[in-house]
Nucleic acid binder design. Sequence first.
RNA 1: UGAGUCGGCUAGGUGGCUGCGGUGCUCCAUUUAUUGGAGGCUGAGGAAGGUCGGGGCUCCAUAGGGCAGAGUGCUGGCUAACGGCCAGUCAGGGUGACCUGCAGGACAGUGCCACAGAAAGGAAACCGCCGAUGGCUUUUAGCACAGGUAAGGGUGAAAGGGUGCGGCAAGAGCGCACCAGCAUCAAAGGUGACUUUGAUGGCUUGGUAAACCCCACUCGGAGCAAGGCAAAAUUUGAGGUGGGCUGCCCGCCUAAUACUUCAUGGUAUGCCGCUUAGAUGGAUAGCCACCCAAAGAAAAUCCACAUUUUCUUGGACAGAACCCCGCCUACAGGCCGACUCACUUU
RNA 2: UCGGGGGUGGUGUAAUUGGCAACACGGCAGGUUCUGGCCCUGUUAUUGAGGGUUCGAGUCCUUCCCCCCGAG
Length: 120
Amino acid sequence: MSYKLRSICDRRTFAALKATKFSARRGSVRSLFACSGEEIGPKIAFGVSKKVGNSVERNRIRRRIRAAIVSNLDQFAPGSYLIIPGKGALNASFEDLKLDVCESMRRSSMKALGLESTNG
RNA sequence: UGAGUCGGCUAGGUGGCUGCGGUGCUCCAUUUAUUGGAGGCUGAGGAAGGUCGGGGCUCCAUAGGGCAGAGUGCUGGCUAACGGCCAGUCAGGGUGACCUGCAGGACAGUGCCACAGAAAGGAAACCGCCGAUGGCUUUUAGCACAGGUAAGGGUGAAAGGGUGCGGCAAGAGCGCACCAGCAUCAAAGGUGACUUUGAUGGCUUGGUAAACCCCACUCGGAGCAAGGCAAAAUUUGAGGUGGGCUGCCCGCCUAAUACUUCAUGGUAUGCCGCUUAGAUGGAUAGCCACCCAAAGAAAAUCCACAUUUUCUUGGACAGAACCCCGCCUACAGGCCGACUCACUUU
RNA sequence: UCGGGGGUGGUGUAAUUGGCAACACGGCAGGUUCUGGCCCUGUUAUUGAGGGUUCGAGUCCUUCCCCCCGAG
């Protein structure tokens, strides 16, 4: 493993994620992407609403998604990701959840990178 | 055997692979005081929850006393403190084990008691009863006028003790007996709330204080986003470098522009507060296998119950956030102990 | 971490000091009409949930659930 997965702890990055247009959805998982060009690898944050469940269920969803991301970390482009799971993420099987998370993250980052390449 | 009551305990376990937080521990590397890696150690609950009560801790306020406001409210003890706990008293519920109770004061005062009912509080005559006494008439009687009357009817959640005998025109604690209840006094038991017994008294003025209130006791306010330390940018102030008066120094003037030092203040941000779990976008996990609980289906023994085998599903409530003591609320299943009632057998 | 307000038919609001849960717009059914509208009649509620005080709770007390607002 070349480097560790980091979480976002910067207010400015969250503001950028709030304003971003690069979002994608697959299954019950939605992900947002923002990129300032300074990131070495992917950084993540979670937005788990209280409507999803109580604190035990919310924690469980977050842990499973984190495990899914860690298991194939090399796929993702460097940048900041905000992952917003829905209610289905709790009872989905681990393979399905992994697919949903990775696909949605990959697609949101591809949108951004594709846009940058057409511009410049 | 069945149905219950009370108290206590537990809150799945083992292994493998891949990972995470903390670390005043050890080693290595890097920079010189930080970062990274490896190892060791360690890493959620009985309620961590709700944030209802109290305390520690921190800052602010504070001569002393009172008013106002808020809270508590049977007795004794425990506690740092509490609206908590333990034991008891009383009241209510249950056949019983046992359970429940914000359980002071309604002769200090004020308010309210809808509808119904005559009357809802120091009473009252609607129906009824009587009409002794007085009155009238057709005078051993009648009228029901004055008036007497709370026994009976009816209303209501509630109608100012109950039963019986006497008494009376009819009645009435009007008189008496017993019972209930109140007040005072005395004795006995108890630390006390209170209980028991006896005597005396007048025959005895509802309910509501989770209505205002009275009485007794308690209470300064805010909360870890408390609070403290360091400290960009910006602000303000004081200098230095600069330009001019002169060739130089001192001195004076200038500051439109630029650089820079110190102080000011304490924002962004970081750290401390902070913990034998100690995060700060929040770690304590993900996946797999087996075992023990549990549920469902099928087959066999089989009237059924029950037992065995196989397969499938698959773990109650719920996640620390400064720390304690309580309360309240949520909770599948299992285990242990004490006790009660009913039935059966001996 | 604190403080304040609220929950009433399907929707929006009332209900004085505890005393018959009211109004409007809807929905449904019926009537009127050749048909529809207007109109008329009826119906549509365990006052967020549980427990208590009281003769009697939308109202008073208490424990939960949900929503909204404010302060740092």
